[in-house]
């Protein structure tokens, strides 16, 4: 039978999950996510988390260092998959938590939660390696299409994966976007997932080739127009784990320590308390040789990730 707690326990150990089980999980998740609005309301206290990128063992550390799903509320800002070796387990674990504790976890879509990007950056290959066919990848991609585009904490903190869009000035306008689709190459939905803050005077072309660069003025206008104090976003590697910009009106939170197993950065999560105060928790990558319990460790090291 479908036993959520057992699946969670298997996932935490990085164990194989049967294709049928993944199918059921994805179906249940879609039904749950379908009813969420594009921008979900979340109450304090809450812990906001940035990119995970398939680093399952670091995701487990994240929960350990920040109270755990049994006791705390979480918002994940997207980019659950690609790059790391455990994209599937990381994503499914978050889905299981969502099913098990629906009001304690909010999942926002990142620019990697798309068919096109996962084909290049590892998730598709991981599924082919683990299952020998692409079914599980397709089930997951269908869930991606239902993920929220943002969240708002106590009418005060706007959460999004990438950043702002010149096409949507208010949070209400974001609510009217039709989100249940593959991420388009342009337009509001694309920008929310792809844009970056930068030292620019106005909306500028992004070097990524999707989304925009936006500056302090665009941030201040968005904050005052929508009556919020802070934009919390992820999307960019920050070596120190987080970075506040524009008079603390925007913060980048990054939660994948030692990104791609080689960048040497630390990770952070941001806790917003009832009085709206911010506190950051910094954490480091799991040491591969530090064999705690019976978790399996990233043994399959990449062969080609340096220039030799």
């Amino acid at each position: 039978m479908f036993d959520l707690d057992r699946i969670i326990s298997l996932l935490r150990q990085g164990r194989h999950i049967a294709e049928e089980t993944v199918y059921t999980l994805c179906l249940l998740s879609q039904e749950l996510l379908m009813n969420e609005s594009n921008v979900t309301h979340v109450n304090t206290p809450v812990t906001i988390c940035g990119d995970i990128h398939g680093q399952l063992h670091d995701l487990l550390t994240l929960f350990e260092k920040s109270g755990g799903i049994e006791k705390s509320r979480y918002i994940f800002l997207g980019d659950f998959v690609d790059r790391g070796f455990y994209s599937l387990e990381s994503f499914l674990l978050l889905l299981c938590y969502k099913l098990r504790y629906p009001d304690r976890i909010t999942l926002i879509r990142g620019n990697h939660e798309t068919r096109q990007i996962t084909k290049v950056y590892g998730f598709y290959d991981e599924i082919m390696r683990k299952y020998g066919n692409s079914n599980v990848w397709r089930y997951c991609c269908e869930v991606f299409d239902y993920l929220s585009l943002g969240a708002i904490v106590n009418q005060s903190v706007f959460c999004v994966h990438g950043g702002l869009s010149p096409d949507v000035m208010t949070i209400d306008e974001i609510r009217s976007v039709d989100r249940k689709q593959e991420v388009p190459h342009e337009g509001a939905m694309c920008d929310l997932l792809w844009s970056d803050p930068d030292d620019v005077d106005t909306w500028s072309l992004s070097p990524r080739g999707a989304g925009f660069l936006f500056g302090g003025q665009q941030v201040q206008e968005f904050l005052s127009r929508n009556g919020v104090d802070l934009i919390a976003r992820a999307h960019q590697l920050v070596m120190e784990g987080y970075k506040e910009m524009f008079d603390n009106g925007l913060v980048t939170v990054w939660s994948a320590p030692n990104y791609c197993y080689r960048c040497g950065n630390v990770a952070a999560v941001l806790r917003i308390d009832d009085d709206l105060s911010r506190s950051y928790t910094i954490f480091e990558a799991v040491q591969p040789q530090n064999d705690v319990g019976n978790t399996i460790l990233p043994t399959r090291k990449p062969q080609m990730d340096y220039f030799l």
Partner: peptide
């Protein structure tokens, strides 16, 4: 170069290439 493959981010490229 951009038309060949989609480069999703510059941060990682920067970390690596500043070390060669």
């Amino acid at each position: 170069l951009k038309s060949l493959q989609f480069l999703d981010e510059l941060e990682e490229l920067k970390v690596m290439q500043t070390h060669y």
